[in-house]
Nucleic acid binder design. Structure first.
Lengths: 337, 337
DNA sequence: CATAGCTGTCGAAGCGCTTCGACAGTGAAT
DNA sequence: ATTCACTGTCGAAGCGCTTCGACAGCTATG
C-alpha cells in the first residue's frame, strides 16, 4: 500500500505539501503540483479513507436508509437509491446503504461513530421514531417523504396534494362526475406514510370545488385483490367513469379487468395512474399519468444535503410540482345514458 | 463526542483495557468488564469508525456494486441489495453502495483506499472488465452472476442452465411438443450478461433429448413489443402450446394477449415464468414458475465473503438449484387437432 | 533601506483507536 | 521455597492523514 509519505519522498517534497496538493487548501506552485501529481500517478497512490476520516473528522460518506420491505414502489425506491448514489459520487461522496431494520439505532450508530457525515431517510412515516434523534444531532439530514411535523427538518417529496388535485382537474375537465381512487394497500395507510393520505386529501378537496363525487378504496396489488375492489366500486357506484390509481401493481390488473367487463379505455372509462413513467408507457394502454420523479427526488436530496454540509444549507421543505402527462387512457366522459 | 480514553478514565482502567473489552481479543475479568460496559452505557460511547479503520486496517464495510441501469430485474436487484445489507449487518458489516457507473475505477478506488474490506459485484458480464482487477488484488470478492472464466473467482448464481432444463422437462411431461421462449431484451444478449444464454442452452439441450421443438425470441418488455413478438411466433409456429418467459415485464402482456386471442391458459397453452415468486403469484393467472431466489443469492454472497475475510474461504462457484413451482398456468397439452 | 505583506513550503502535533510486549499477581507443579 | 505458566492489566508505539503555526524568500510600500 502506497502512503502519502512515500509520494512525498518520491516527489521530493514534504507530506504536508502532498496533502495540500490533494486538497487544494493552500496554494502550491505549478511545478511542485505537477511533480506531486506525477508521483501520485506513477505510484498509483490512493489516500487511505480511514486515516483521512480520522484526521479530518469527515468521512465523505452519506448514509441512505431504505425501507426494509419490498412490497411497494420498489422501482421507485431503486431509482431513488441509484440517483442518490450517482449524484453523491459526482460530489465526491460515497453512499452507505442502511435498511430500516435497525430503526432508530442505525441513526445513533452512524452519527455516533462518524461513519457518515450526513444521512438521507426514505419512507418516512408521519410520526417517525427516528425524527427526534435527527433533531437532536447536529449531523445534517434530508428526508424523502413528509412527516407530520417538519420543524427543524429538511424534506424532499413530490407534492402529492397537488398531484391529487391535478388528477381531479383533468378528469373534471373531461366531463367526468363520478370517480374512484384505487389507493395503496391498507397497510400503507395504517403505517401512516403520509403520501397516500396527502394525495387523497388534495384530490378530495379539489373534487369538492369541481363538483366531482369521489369513492376511495385501498387495494392490495395483484389481480385478485383488484378484481374484488373493482367489483365493489362498480356495485356501489355503477356510474363511475374515472379512475385514479395510486398502486402500481394494481394498474395492469385494472386494465385487464375493465377490458374483460367490456368497458373500453378511454371511450367508456378514463384511467390516470400515479406511477413512474416507465410503468405508464409499458402498460397495455399507454397511460395518462402523473409521474413520480424518483431521479429528481434522489438528486435533490443529495444536493440539499451537500449544501448543508458546506454550510450553505437551510432547513426547508421542497415539494416537487407534479406533472400530468396525457396519454391514451383518458378521454371525454361518455354521454349520460 | 465521547472517546475511548474518556470511557477508560470513567471506568478507572487504561484505554487498552477498554479496547479489549470491546473486541474480546484478550481475557478481561468479569468485574472490570462490567465496569467498562457500564461506563460505555452511561457515556453513550460509540467507537469512531475512522480511527478504528486506521488502526486495524479493517473498515468493516462491504462494497456492493449494483448495475446503473434500471431497465431489468429491478425487483430482483433490490431484493438482493436488501438481503446483502441485512445479512452484512447481522455479521457486523455495513454496506457501501456503488453503481456500475464508475466501472473498473470503482474497484481500484475502493481497494486502494481501504474504504471497504471486500466487495460484491452484481450484473457481471461474461467478459467483465472488472475481473482482471479483482484477480490481481488480494481483497476478497464475490460475484453475483457467472462470467465466462471463473478461475480465481467466487461466484453465486441461480443455476440458469438447470432452470432452462427444468422448464423443458415440465412442458415435455405435460405433452407439449412445440414451445417458445420469450427471452430478455436483445440488449441483454448483446451485453453478454450470460444468464439468458445459459437458460437457453439448458433449455435447448434438454429439449433435444426430450424431442421438443424450441423457438427463441428476445423481447423488450411492455405490451407493444410483446404483441409483435407473439404475432411472429404464432405466425412461424402456429402449433406452439408452451411458453417460457424470462422477461418479467413481458409476463402480464403475454397473458393479456393470449386471452385476447382466445387462447385459454392453461387449457390451450401453458406458460412458465422465470421470475420472483411475488410476480408469479400476483399475475392475472397464478403462474407456474421457477423462482429467482434473490434473497438467497444476496445472503450466500455475503456469507461467502465473510468466510473469506475470516480466512475460511475458498474460491468456488455456487449454483443454486432451481425450483419449479406448479401453479395455475400450466396443464396438459391439448389433443392435436 | 527598513517594513509589511505575500506565496510556497515544511515540521510537528494530534485525530481515536488497536495491538504488542511487559509485567504484577496468582496458583500449581516441582 | 522456587520455578513455571497463566491471567488480567497497562503503557507506548504507531496506523496515514490533516492542519496549524513558522518561516524563507519575495515583491510592493512608505
Amino acid at each position: 500500500m502506497v502512503t502519502l509519505a512515500e509520494v512525498a519522498q518520491h516527489a521530493g517534497v514534504s507530506a504536508s505539501t502532498v496533502s495540500y496538493v490533494l486538497s487544494g487548501k493552500r496554494s502550491i506552485s505549478v511545478s511542485t503540483r505537477q511533480r506531486v501529481e506525477r508521483s501520485i500517478q506513477e505510484l498509483g497512490y490512493h489516500p487511505n479513507a480511514g486515516a483521512r476520516a480520522l484526521a479530518s473528522s469527515r468521512s465523505n460518506i452519506i448514509a441512505l436508509m431504505v425501507p426494509l420491505r419490498t412490497d411497494m414502489y420498489v422501482p421507485v425506491m431503486m431509482e431513488i437509491a441509484i440517483a442518490v448514489a450517482t449524484t453523491a459520487r459526482a460530489h465526491g461522496y460515497d453512499v452507505l446503504l442502511l435498511t430500516g431494520e435497525e430503526g432508530p439505532d442505525a441513526v445513533r450508530r452512524v452519527t455516533g461513530s462518524g461513519l457518515a457525515d450526513a444521512m438521507i431517510l426514505m419512507d418516512v412515516e408521519l410520526d417517525d421514531e427516528r425524527l427526534p434523534l435527527l433533531r437532536e444531532t447536529d449531523q445534517p439530514s434530508v428526508l424523502i417523504g413528509l412527516p407530520a411535523d417538519t420543524t427543524g427538518l429538511t424534506c424532499v417529496d413530490l407534492d402529492f396534494g397537488a398531484t391529487g388535485a391535478l388528477c381531479a382537474e383533468h378528469l373534471a375537465l373531461l366531463g367526468h362526475r363520478d370517480i374512484a381512487v384505487i389507493g395503496e394497500a391498507p397497510a400503507v395507510y395504517e403505517r401512516h406514510t403520509g403520501f397516500a393520505e396527502r394525495t387523497l386529501d388534495g384530490l378530495r378537496s379539489r373534487s369538492r370545488e369541481l363538483g366531482l363525487r369521489v369513492l376511495h378504496r385501498p387495494c392490495e396489488g395483484g389481480y385478485d385483490a383488484m378484481a374484488l375492489t373493482l367489483a365493489r366500486i362498480l356495485d356501489e357506484r355503477p356510474g363511475t367513469t374515472g379512475f385514479v390509481v395510486q398502486n402500481e401493481s394494481a394498474v395492469e390488473p385494472l386494465l385487464a379487468l375493465l377490458r374483460q367487463k367490456g368497458r373500453a379505455v378511454p371511450e367508456d372509462v378514463s384511467v390516470i395512474a400515479i406511477c413512474p413513467d416507465q410503468v405508464a408507457t409499458q402498460a397495455s394502454v399507454r397511460l395518462t399519468s402523473v409521474a413520480i420523479p424518483a431521479q429528481d427526488m434522489g438528486r435533490h436530496a443529495v444536493e440539499h444535503l451537500i449544501a448543508k454540509l458546506e454550510g450553505r444549507g437551510e432547513d426547508d421543505v421542497v415539494l416537487i410540482a407534479p406533472e400530468l402527462t396525457v396519454r391514451a387512457s383518458t378521454g371525454p366522459a361518455p354521454a349520460a345514458p
